[in-house]
Amino acid sequence: MISLKQDQTKVKETKVTSGDEAGRREFLKGSAAALALAPGMTLFAYGEALAKPADQAVSTKSRWGLLIDAAKFSDEDVDACVKACQDENGWSDTGKPLTDPQWIRRVNLKNKKTEEQFSLPMMCQHCAEPPCVDVCPTGASFKRKDGIVLVDKHICIGCRYCMMACPYKARSFVHEHIEDQKEHAPRGIGTVESCTMCVHLVDEGKEPACVKAAPAGAMVFGDLNDKTSKLAQLIKSVATQQVRADLNLDPGVRYRNI
């Protein structure tokens, strides 16, 4: 408890001036470069070391994204991701499939021509041009500067227009009262919710829960804007796909081997 109190006094609620911010950026750049140079850490230039200071606002410098390799997922692997999301964010299956929330789901695919079958995890694709954000009347649906698409439940009126607009069916509406929410994942009746890319973890410099639960290399999380990140390098070097690329929404979540 003492440590908590110390933290409280330590943290200064000063507004970060633009000069400060630029300085921090420089600092971050330096540390990223250092990481990139360190042997064995070259590709995964992401971790606790890059966590932004708690008092610093997110910026457009980063754009968080995911690369999901469908070939590396069995049905059970996808389910493990779903379970990890449920545990992390406190939503669950209550036996009402039509109204239960589903932040992430297993989509089973069967190619009509080749009869090939596989499955993959599907969730909010964190578009650069999110239709849900365009249609939201109050601005509750918004995209953070670092590309994470969220619902500000404080001003969500529950009109569900974003659910009509989302091409990925990524959103659910909270149909009943819920209790004992996770303290880092507030969710409540009458508002719309979806995958937050575990924003509370990302802000601490950690990976989303599903990425941790996925088989090694099946899900890569990282900064699309950081050319040295494993994610950016993979996207540069291997064939990746966007779901509904025809809509030109530039999703932050990309797939391989669909």
Partner: peptide
């Protein structure tokens, strides 16, 4: 603070609901 945290990811402890509740 709520707007700062929600939109800018500022997660300092001062005025954070989670922290008030904890204490």
């Amino acid at each position: 603070k709520r707007d700062q945290t929600m939109h800018d990811g500022i997660r300092t402890k001062k005025y954070s609901l989670k922290n008030c509740i904890a204490c």
